[in-house]
């Protein structure tokens, strides 16, 4: 019975590792990290890979050790004496401090670099500003228009019924007149984007796995992130913060375009306002 437990643990440990290593689930389903289309993403991916190696080795080593000990020490004769682990508890504690301690210290220090690339470097002054507004259960986006300035948001004017999603007062606020509101987010490739995040109602989140960005929208507190997309294509922005019954269907598309296509798109959108 004990030997079977040991074998089962080994089999489970190995089976568990296979999809991680091959990035595939039976039926050719890809379960690895999605492709990276951001300039900072490689730092996160490297950090992820390092962590996976350390975690994978720790996982396999400890499961296999557990299995081996179960296999080995469940069969004994009545007269057998118990044995003490070489080095005793002190050895193990020192080992834990040294091995795990260095491991986590390394992860912590290098991880800070990746984190800093997203949050500690300010956006460059010529980054393109886009505002995202999250509400139950759709995202809307706003481009400042030719004047480069966003008009103020008036909560009492917010109206889904009349499609004034941002609560703009286009008659009285000159800055709002040329603002372009869209349901899709288009951005030019290889241009830094400064995303200003505003929540209309609940907590929401902006998650684009390919962009290696996830950031909550905080009601009452406008936060921002910045990123540069490097690959033209159509990606999905999904909400990851439970915001109500339609949470599962709260999404928008992110279109990364060439600069010319983007300019054309923005002109089209401006005409539709």
């Amino acid at each position: 019975m004990a030997k079977l437990v040991a074998v089962t643990i080994v089999v489970i440990a190995i089976l568990s590792a296979i999809p991680i290593i091959t990035h595939t689930w039976p039926g050719n389903i890809s379960v690895g990290l999605p492709q990276d289309i951001s300039t900072h993403g490689y730092l996160i991916d490297e950090q992820y890979a390092d962590t996976m190696i350390e975690a994978g080795v720790s996982f396999l080593a400890s499961q296999l050790l557990l299995a081996y000990f179960i296999w080995r020490f469940s069969s004994y004769k009545p007269g057998d004496k118990i044995k003490k682990f070489p080095g005793g508890a002190t050895g193990l504690v020192v080992a834990a401090f040294l091995l795990v301690g260095t491991e986590v210290l390394a992860l912590g220090v290098f991880g800070t670099k990746a984190w800093g690339s997203v949050y500690f470097t300010p956006p460059s002054p010529n980054a393109m500003a886009v505002q995202a507004q999250a509400g139950q259960f759709a995202f809307y986006f706003r481009y400042p228009g030719p004047d480069g300035t966003f008009g103020p948001i008036h909560p009492n004017l917010v109206s889904e019924a009349s499609a004034n999603f941002f609560g703009l007062d286009t008659t009285n606020d000159p800055d709002s007149k040329d603002d372009i509101v869209t349901a899709e987010m288009a951005i030019p490739v290889n241009r830094e984007i400064h995303l200003l995040m505003h929540s209309k109602d609940m907590g929401h989140s902006f998650y684009v796995p390919e962009l290696r960005i996830q950031q909550d929208f905080v009601p009452g507190l406008d936060v921002s992130v910045h990123f540069t997309a490097t690959k033209i294509g159509k990606y999905e922005i999904v909400c990851t913060q439970l915001c109500g019954l339609g949470h599962y269907n709260m999404k928008a598309y992110l279109e990364v375009m060439s600069q010319e296509d983007f300019d054309k798109w923005l002109k089209q959108q401006a005409a539709l306002q």
Binding site: Y48, T51, A55, V104, G111, A114, R212
Partner: peptide
């Protein structure tokens, strides 16, 4: 937990 402890990977 190694992954979730690091904000940079937690983003993902």
């Amino acid at each position: 937990g190694f992954f979730l402890a690091q904000p940079s990977i937690d983003i993902m």
